[in-house]
Design a protein around this nucleic acid. Structure first.
Lengths: 349, 349
DNA sequence: TAGAGCCTGGACAACGTTGTCAGATGCGGG
DNA sequence: CCCGCATCTGACAACGTTGTCCAGGCTCTA
């Protein structure tokens, strides 16, 4: 008996999920549909008396405009998408917050998701956001091929990449100067007398990791130091492997006297290892982190401004939205070396 | 000449924003509209050959289904809203991430925003999410009156409050045991010989702050200690005022020998102050934070599990969505005292 | 080879809103 | 007293998708 089944569905649906529409409000207030729309949107041309009647009906029914329908009609969603790597990573908190503030200032909502550093998941997420018809996208890319975004770009979805450049596609990108920052950090260690300096970083597949490695090599080369393979550890971020990598560098006949850590998670783990071994090994980390100043010694870092990255990207996004696409541009934000002690230790004999 | 103006608008709109629809795909593939819909949604009843033709047209045009229209038709949006206090606060990173993971497992997207601890902004945000017709809401409340949500609850919007209870409304809530945690933390200090113990926390208007204060008072009373007004500092979280509050407690003829800090931001500031003064004052903080173990002394904390809060709330949300509303329930998650040194210091003479 | 039944494809309405346009109402002036 | 005008209101189509329902063509069997 399909009739009954259908009836049943309808009842269930109306019990949870059916909300009053403008039509309902109009009926209750004894006015036309469009008049309700006018009141809801604060359009002119409604007598105060009519407006009051409509407003009463709205309150009585608990009506809320259905933005899905509105979006369908108007074309713009007043929402932007943010795809980042991991919300739980403290680096992305301020970035995300900055993007949100800018979005809010432009009356837009933020839809976000984490790619967990998985290119496939990134694409899935981005396309889901596009299906929602977000007006724009801020993406911290996990993958290195973003050609799947071509139709979106052509259709005018404003897009800005942050922290790492887009792959095989022309798009705006906002970066920290990873190369220069790493070079400066390593040069700082060299200036304090170190020659055997270790590097622990992420997979070179990741642009920032590659750039930081390049900065490390450049600084070493500038100082005329040949780098031993055993000083470099790439593609290593989980605490257990970082720990092993650090311990290996510190063992052997000619151990490193200083370590450059490629990102804040690596830095923290290295701090732990050094605290345990108790050896006075110098350390400079890429990325600042909370409480770095409270440790003993304080941790010297190459700081990037996560909030500025987010703010810059979001502002550029809305400039695209307001004025149509600008030429793709690459914006490099400077880094800053903060000396706190760990980077100024002299080499152990 | 309004004709021209309108024409102009239309061109601009079509240049950026007009995307191919199923109709376009259907025309290009030489099939009917519904057939395209079937292919896009993987419904059965399409010959492989037809499917291939449709798929080619989709790829050629760069078609993406418009989920706004889909939502309008189907009723459910497969998205949930998360309203929290401040994404940049490290406490909310793991919480937010946990909510996202659960949402993802249920095929839903997460839309979020920060209330910045402002009740009005919270309401604005929640209602904007409801207008988007999110299927459910996870709210960390800033205000204490949520009657504005009554129509939404009646309409079946699944809602779970986290970290603080809802005001004047019956709804699910997932909390950490603030009272018990604070009482245990303060009792721990008392057990180590302290009697003059300071408390620095947020405004008692905030439920968790009030509960933690209550826990402090309870522990003191249990030990038969009369609390002096000068030992308590309420409504204080910004670093400058926390600093002053701590300094005042430590000055005067009978300074406190231990401090209980009401949340992690307060704790960190107090750590700074104590590090500067160099006095051996005992400290227990509510909320764990990264690196607490690396400080000297390590910081003893009452830890709550932010990820568990988020996970529990989101899971409950989807249980509501799957099975209709359950009775409103309050879930208390236990806290855990982690001894690291700062809470075990004996009172200075 | 004709009829029954299945499989594929398409026409049409509906979701809730907004833009367009035309009708209704009331007012003042001739 | 009637006309013109301004102001307010409502009917209608459209946004892009999906659910329903029906038509046509095919295969299989008798």
């Amino acid at each position: 008996m399909p009739e009954t089944a259908r009836r049943g569905d309808r009842i269930a649906a109306s019990r949870y999920g059916n909300r009053p529409t403008m039509k309902d409000v109009a009926a209750r207030a004894g006015v036309g549909l469009k008049t309700v729309s006018r009141v809801v949107n604060g359009e002119p041309g409604v007598t105060p008396d009519t407006e009051r009647r409509v407003q009463e009906a709205i309150d009585a029914l608990g009506f809320r405009r259905n933005d899905s329908a509105r979006v369908l009609r108007k074309g713009r969603t007043a929402s932007i998408g943010l795809v980042l790597e991991d919300l739980a990573d403290p680096f992305y908190g301020p970035l995300s917050r900055a993007v949100e503030e800018v979005a809010r200032a432009h009356g837009a909502l933020l839809i976000n998701g984490s790619s967990a550093e998985d290119p496939e998941r990134e694409q899935e997420l981005v396309l889901a956001l596009c299906a929602r018809r977000v007006d724009g996208l801020v993406v911290i890319p996990a993958g290195d091929d973003h050609r799947y975004l071509e139709p979106e770009l052509k259709a005018g979805v404003a897009t800005v990449f942050v922290d790492r450049p887009a792959g095989r596609i022309d798009a705006d990108v906002v970066l920290s100067d990873s190369f220069g920052g790493a070079r400066d950090g390593v040069a700082h260690l060299i200036a304090h007398g170190h020659r055997r300096i270790g590097f622990i970083g992420d997979m070179p597949r990741i642009h920032t990791a590659a750039e930081r490695l390049r900065g490390y090599r450049a600084a070493m080369e500038d100082a005329g130091i040949a780098v031993a393979d055993t000083w470099m550890s790439l593609g290593v971020t989980d605490p257990e492997r970082v720990r092993r990598a650090a311990e290996e560098m510190l063992a052997g006949p000619s151990p490193v006297t200083a370590i450059f850590a490629g990102n804040n998670r690596v830095t923290v783990t290295v701090v732990r290892v050094l605290a345990e071994t108790g050896r006075p090994v110098a350390l400079v980390g890429f990325d600042d982190f909370e409480l770095a100043d409270l440790l003993r010694p304080g941790v010297t870092v190459v700081a990037q401004d996560a909030a500025a990255l987010g703010r810059t990207a979001a502002e550029r996004l809305f400039r695209q939205l307001d004025g149509g696409p600008l030429g793709p541009e690459r914006i490099d934000l400077p880094t800053r070396l903060i000396q706190r002690g760990s980077g100024e230790l002299p080499p152990a004999p």
